[in-house]
């Protein structure tokens, strides 16, 4: 299970569905400081990361994240002196348990947001991004797609000029300022080259009728039935959870005293809803993996 090489369900679903889901989940995570919600988001983001990136990458990033969480939790009392349970005094300032626990959950919230964004960065390739925004902001989307074309092209050209200058022995010393000067000389030639070239591209676009009325564009992302179903499911769940959070059923106070968790029916349903929503992505990937292995075993 897991692993970075097998098929990914979310790679193949419609960009609108994937984008709304991830942005919805990230917003919900940032909306609330409820520890249970944050815990759910944390676990689900890690399980989804595991499904997308595999075990090695996930463990590696967790080893980096854990010390950060601990440091934030331990240092938060230095900045915040609210809270009733004083653990000890440092320079006449009270260090409170509440501040420490708040720090822990604030850090967990941040880390979960990072993990969701990690998944977002893996799934939201630039072609999908441009497809999403091309309709709403055509000029900016066009600009964006050009930039994404230019960047690797320019890097290649930069390296070509850089290497030929090195071969010609123009690179003088190895000091910091010399390096900057040489790199700048390359950058300078790149600027002239790229501006002239890009104007040519612009003229060619104009000659082919860019910006004329009535031009359509081809889309490679079909809006399948499964996308419709998934989108309506995500939409409903995101709205339910958001409304639930706004009504205050999952409100949670850290200061002056930590609220006792309420285990009435509505908050529990809310946590359950949040869990279902955030865990769906992992489930979809597990299902896709099983299907993949099943089909492979039949070959």
């Amino acid at each position: 299970m897991g692993g970075a090489n097998s098929m990914k369900y979310f790679h193949n679903c419609h960009p609108v569905v994937m984008f709304s889901y991830l942005i919805g989940v990230i917003f919900i995570t940032m909306f609330t400081m409820n520890p249970i919600f944050i815990g759910i988001s944390f676990l689900c983001s890690i399980s989804f990361t595991f499904m997308l990136f595999g075990a090695k990458e996930t463990v590696k990033s967790l080893l980096l994240a854990m010390p950060m969480i601990i440091i934030i939790a331990l240092t938060n009392p230095l900045f915040v002196h609210k809270g009733e349970t004083v653990l000890f005094f440092l320079n006449n300032n009270p260090m409170t348990l509440e501040a420490m626990i708040y720090g822990l959950f604030a850090a967990l919230m941040l880390v979960s947001v990072f993990y969701w964004f990690k998944c977002y960065n893996r799934l939201m390739t630039s072609d999908k991004f441009i497809y999403l925004f091309g309709q709403v902001i055509p000029k900016l989307a066009l600009m964006l797609s050009m930039m994404l074309n230019f960047v690797p092209k320019f890097i290649k050209q930069f390296k070509a000029v850089d290497e030929s200058q090195k071969a010609m022995g123009i690179y003088s010393g190895s000091s910091y300022t010399d390096k900057i000067k040489c790199k700048f000389r390359v950058l300078s030639s790149l600027i002239t080259w790229s501006l002239e070239n890009s104007i040519e591209t612009a003229d060619s676009m104009k000659a082919r009728g860019y910006g004329l009325k009535g031009r359509t564009s081809y889309s490679v992302f079909p809006w399948k039935t499964s996308d419709k179903l998934l989108m309506s499911y995500f939409g409903v769940m995101i709205i339910i959870v958001t409304v639930g959070l706004f009504t205050g059923y999952a409100d949670f106070d850290y200061y002056p005293k930590i609220t006792r968790m309420s285990f009435e029916i509505i908050p529990i349903l809310l946590y359950f809803g949040g869990f279902i929503l955030m865990f769906t992505s992992t489930i979809m990937e597990i299902k896709e993996n099983m299907l993949w292995h099943y089909l492979k075993s039949k070959i």
Binding site: K139, L142, M143, M146, M147, F150, V151, F154, I155, F158, L187, L190, I191, S194, L195, S198, I199, T201, A202, D203, M205, K206, Y210, G211
Partner: peptide
Amino acid sequence: ASSREIIVIATMTALAVV
């Protein structure tokens, strides 16, 4: 904005990123 202007901004941005 003309296509030339769009592309010049795109080029400068790409240069900044590069």
